[in-house]
């Protein structure tokens, strides 16, 4: 397996080099592009760790959607790139910071090396209780059954993220659509591109969500791909961003956590405990919840990237 090892070392070196580029790159834009590359390479690392679900999530959210968020921000921040001299750290502070970071990294590396090769694990217990859920993918089972409380609350975090981003709107724009109104006609190439890519992407997104029950994939990953497709269609101006006050949008944004929460509470009545699934009904119920979660993620991520409302609300 020496070829594989060489590949691993090469990959590790590449990841580190690109990460260093994003920290030391000359300008914010160069740094964000470096980050997109970095996210991609990281997906490879996750494949090497046999964490395919994570690789998908990293590719879709960590690299894809976050990359677009940061590229957009870097483009808008042009002109703010110069650092006033008084804000730059002095050489001594830099040295001190570097020493501190080196210390943290070294301590962490030492502990990582000390971890036993066969570590403690919950894999057997997950597999033991996997049949109760009717699922074939243990990662999905952890997310939607064993630790469903985490997942539901994390969906609430996403809702709060939207509330927080929208809270930055100017008062007169409250309830309006995010993004600046653009009078110009859409770029024809972009429009064509979006028309070709979106249907394929939607298909892939739904596929990734659907296989998530038994194979790597699931609500997060599928939802993120769907989100990317909605964003590209909006970028190409084939459709308008919705108004922040639209009831259907609010409903879409909370549907995932709301259905999840309702199912969790219903469990207390039907299955004898909060977030318990009635035996036999677990799989259909899980797929039902996941469907809403996928939909909500597909709507939430574009709203988080689009930023606060920036147009006067239409009545």
């Amino acid at each position: 397996m020496s070829v594989l090892q060489a590949l691993d070392v090469g990959l590790a070196f590449l990841v580190f080099a690109v990460a260093a580029w994003t920290v030391f790159a000359p300008g914010p834009f160069a740094a964000t592009v470096g980050y997109v590359v970095y996210g991609l390479l990281l997906s490879l690392v996750w494949i090497r760790l046999f964490a395919v679900d994570v690789a998908l999530t990293e590719a879709a959210i960590g690299s894809g959607v976050t990359g677009v968020l940061l590229i957009g921000a870097a483009a808008r921040l042009r002109g703010a790139e110069t650092t006033p001299a008084e804000e730059a750290l002095t050489g001594l502070t830099r040295l001190f910071a570097a020493g501190l970071c080196l210390l943290v990294a070294a301590a962490l590396a030492a502990v990582v090396l000390l971890l036993p090769d066969q570590g403690p694990t919950l894999a057997p217990q997950s597999m033991e209780r996997l049949p109760e859920t009717g699922l074939g993918n243990p990662v999905t089972a952890v997310l939607i059954a064993f630790r469903s409380f985490d997942t539901m609350l994390e969906k609430v975090v996403l809702v709060l993220g939207v509330v927080g981003v929208w809270s930055l709107a100017a008062d007169r724009y409250w309830g309006g659509a995010p993004g600046e109104a653009r009078a110009e006609r859409p770029e024809p190439t972009l429009a064509f591109f979006a028309q070709v890519l979106a249907p394929i992407g939607i298909l892939v997104g739904v596929h990734v969500f659907w296989v998530g029950a038994d194979e790597p994939g699931g609500a997060f990953q599928g939802g993120a791909i769907l989100a990317a497709m909605w964003m590209i269609v909006m970028m190409a101006r084939l459709t308008e961003a919705p108004q922040a006050s639209a009831f259907w949008l609010r409903l879409a944004l909370i549907a995932g956590p709301a259905v999840f929460l309702a199912a969790g509470v219903a469990g207390a009545v039907v299955a004898g405990g909060f977030f318990a699934y009635p035996p036999g009904l677990a799989k259909p119920l899980i797929l039902f919840i996941e469907t809403f979660m996928t939909f909500t993620i597909a709507v939430t991520l574009p709203m988080l990237v689009a930023g606060p409302p920036r147009r006067e609300p239409r009545r």
């Binding site: 570590g119 919950l122 894999a123 997950s126 033991e128 243990p138």
Partner: peptide, 15 residues
């Protein structure tokens, strides 16, 4: 490092 029970990796940290 938690690979066991036929899984290549412990699903809990992955989640």
């Amino acid at each position: 490092k938690g690979a066991a029970a036929g899984l290549s990796a412990d699903p809990v940290p992955q989640a």
